[in-house]
């Protein structure tokens, strides 16, 4: 994950190098049928994620309408259009956590961080996801930030926990 983190901070030079590399990839695959998925894969590998600008670049180079490129990007869940945050929050919505208020935690975090599920906060601090049971059912509700599991959380504790990660 860390390799893909905070690519937004790429310098202009790094960006140019990445684009040149991607142009090479396109050249290599251009004549193969159905190569778009392959190319997008490698582009994400190189650049970290697939923002609109990069999709436009690929659309132009391959002469495929942008809406089709983005159609493929949004079809597969392993493509991401935003860089991952420095930290990943996963709120458990397994049965136990769900009934003990996991949903409240999701709502609270969404509101506080102004981020949709699967999205990343504007400042690039957090990527926000949900999980199905993270093995702490006895101490539900639970959630994780990166590899740390926080158990029996409630809304009041959340601010303090998050504070440690800024």
């Amino acid at each position: 994950m860390t390799a893909e983190t905070a690519k937004e901070a790429l310098s202009l030079e790094e960006k140019e190098r990445a684009y040149a590399q991607i142009a090479n990839v396109i050249d290599l695959y251009r004549r193969k049928e159905d190569s778009l998925v392959q190319i997008l894969h490698l582009a994400q590998e190189i650049y970290g994620h697939l923002p609109l600008e990069l999709q436009q670049f690929i659309s132009r180079e391959m002469n495929i309408p942008l809406s089709q490129v983005s159609g493929v990007v949004s079809f597969y869940s392993f493509f991401s259009t935003v860089p991952r945050g420095r930290h990943t929050i996963r709120v458990c919505l397994g049965t136990a956590c769900y009934v003990r208020g996991g949903k409240k935690i999701v709502e609270y975090l969404q509101d506080k961080l102004q981020v949709e599920l699967g999205g990343t906060t504007d400042d690039g601090s957090f990527t926000f996801e949900v999980a199905r049971c993270i093995g702490a059912c006895g101490l539900a509700p639970a959630f994780m930030i990166d590899d740390t599991v926080y158990k029996q959380v409630n809304v009041n504790k959340l601010d303090k926990i998050l504070g440690q990660y800024y």
Partner: peptide, 28 residues
Amino acid sequence: GVGAMSPQNRGFKTEIGPAMKLPLGKVN
């Protein structure tokens, strides 16, 4: 031969439209 709209996302979330939720008035 314009390609302003294509299917986006998948399954229940499938939507026919321009890339990345761009409004039609902002694309080609």
